[in-house]
Design a protein around this nucleic acid. Structure first.
Lengths: 250, 250
DNA sequence: CACGTTTTAAAATGAACGTTTGAATCATAC
DNA sequence: GTATGATTCAAACGTTCATTTTAAAACGTG
C-alpha cells in the first residue's frame, strides 16, 4: 500500500504533474521514467499503461496546457477584432493578446503556473525532434492567425519583417521564461517576492520591450555588420598543442 | 589503420569538431561518446584520454569558442570607449559590439560558424547545471562590463530596467540562433541562399529589433496584465476521466 | 636507434535506461 | 458472492551508457 492518500489526485494526473516538473528541471532526456514514477509514488509501468510510453507522456504533458492556451488566444483575438468596428486591432493589443495570455498562466497554479512557462520556453529549442514537431503543429493555426493580424495592423511593414519580429518576440519571451541561472546573476530578484508578483513585474517590462522592438524602424537592407564579420586572419581558435602538464592526459 | 588521412586535423581537434556538431544536433544528454568517437573515427577511449570525460569535453567545446568571443568583445568595447573622448558610447553601438560580435562568428567557419551559434543559443537554457554554470562563469566579467556600459549610456533608465532588457536581448538573440523548426515554418527562407547571406540578413533585422526594444519607453509599474491573469474559474485543465476507448489503456 | 607521447584495439564493468509481462488487487455490477 | 474489467504491482527483459583496464602499435623527436 503506497500512501496515495497523501496526494491530491489520481495516478494519471499525478504522473502528469510530476512529469511536467521533472521535464523542466532535468530536460526530457535527463528525466527517467523511474524518477517520475518514483516521485509520483506510482508504479513504473503506470506510464506505459496510461500513456503508452515516454514520448507519449511528454506529448500529454504539453497538450494538457497548450490546448487551453491556444483556445484562449483565439478567443481573445476574436474579441479584439470584434471590438474594432472593422478596424484592425492595434499592434500592442495583439502583443498583449498573444504573450499576455501566456504569461498570465504563470499566475495560475491550476494552469501549470511558472513550471509550465519554463517548460514551454525550453521546448521550442529542444534537441528532440518530436517535441519541436509537436509544438509546431500545436501552434501552427494560432501563429498563422496572429501573424496575419500583425500584418493587418502594420500595413507599412513588409510581411517578412513581421514574421521575423514575431520570432524575436517569441525568443525574448521564451528565454525570459526559461529562467536560466544567468538571469539570476544578471538580474537581482527580490527574493521574498511572491512568484505571482514576479510574474507581473516581468510582464510589464517584457511588454514594453516587445512593443518597442515591434515598432522599431524598418532595418536598412544594406546595413553592414561590425568588423567581426568575415574576419579570418586573427582567428586561431584551434589549439593543436598538447594539453598543459598536470591536466589531461594523465 | 582507420583512414585518419581523410580528416583535416588531429584526434583532439576532430573530437572537438564532431562533438560540437553532435551536441547541437542531439543535445548533451542525447549525444553519446560512442556517437562522437564513431563519427570522428577515433577510439572510444580517446575522449577520456584527452579531456577526462564527457563533461570535460563539453567544457572544452564551449571554451574553445567563448574565450575568443569574450576577448573580442572586450577589445571592441575598449575601442568604442577610447573613441568617445570621455563620452559614453551610444546604446546602439554597445548592442552592435556585444551581439554583432557574436553573430559575426556565424560567418566564419574557423570560429565554429552557425554550428557554434546554435550551440551557444541552446546552452543558456540547458537542463544540465554544469553547462549553465560554465556559461555564467565565462560570461560574468563581460556581461558585468557591458551592463555598466549600458547604464552609463542610458542615465535615465533605472539599472534594474537595463538588466532586464539585456536579458530580453540575449533571449531574442539566442532564440533566433537556436533556429527551431518553428522559425522555418513561420519565416520563409530563400533556400538557395548562402548561410553567410542568411546570417547578414538576420543581423540587420535583429539589430533594429534589439535597439527598438532597448529604447522603448520605461514601463508603467502599475500596468495590469490582460484578463488572463489570475483567472481560475474557466480553467479545467485536469482531466481525471479515464482515457477514451480505443486509445490507451489497451 | 631509443624514448616518451599518442593512438588503437578489444574487452569488461556496473549502473541506468525504456519497455514488457503476467499475476495480484481493486471497484463495480450482476 | 462472484464475475468482470480496469488498474496496480513486482520482476525481469534486452539494450545502451560512461568509464576503466588491458595491451600492443604507431608516431615524432632528440
Amino acid at each position: 500500500m503506497t500512501s496515495a492518500a497523501l496526494h491530491p489526485a489520481n495516478t494519471r494526473t499525478r504522473i502528469l504533474d510530476v512529469g511536467e516538473r521533472l521535464f523542466v528541471k532535468h530536460g526530457y532526456d535527463g528525466t527517467s521514467l523511474r524518477m517520475i514514477t518514483g516521485e509520483a509514488q506510482v508504479n513504473l509501468a503506470a506510464v506505459n499503461y496510461h500513456f503508452g510510453g515516454k514520448e507519449a507522456l511528454m506529448e500529454a504533458v504539453l497538450k494538457r496546457r497548450l490546448d487551453w492556451l491556444n483556445e484562449q488566444r483565439m478567443r481573445v483575438l476574436d474579441e479584439l477584432e470584434a471590438a474594432g468596428d472593422g478596424l484592425p486591432p492595434r499592434p500592442h493589443k495583439i502583443v498583449e493578446a498573444f504573450f499576455g495570455t501566456l504569461i498570465g498562466m504563470g499566475c495560475n497554479k491550476d494552469l501549470g503556473g511558472q513550471i509550465f512557462l519554463k517548460l514551454i520556453g525550453r521546448s521550442f529549442t529542444s534537441p528532440n525532434g518530436f517535441i519541436r514537431a509537436l509544438l509546431a503543429e500545436e501552434y501552427r493555426e494560432v501563429v498563422e492567425r496572429y501573424k496575419q493580424a500583425f500584418i493587418n495592423a502594420l500595413p507599412d511593414v513588409p510581411r517578412q519583417e513581421v514574421a521575423w519580429r514575431f520570432q524575436f518576440m517569441l525568443g525574448a519571451t521564451a528565454y525570459a521564461l526559461a529562467g536560466s541561472d544567468f538571469l539570476q546573476v544578471s538580474v537581482q530578484f527580490d527574493s521574498d517576492e511572491l512568484p505571482e508578483e514576479q510574474t507581473r513585474r516581468l510582464w510589464s517590462r517584457l511588454y514594453s520591450f516587445l512593443v518597442g522592438g515591434m515598432r522599431a524602424p524598418i532595418p536598412d537592407e544594406d546595413l553592414l555588420p561590425p568588423q567581426a564579420f568575415a574576419l579570418a586572419s586573427t582567428a586561431s581558435a584551434d589549439d593543436d598543442s598538447p594539453p598543459p602538464g598536470g591536466g589531461f592526459p594523465p
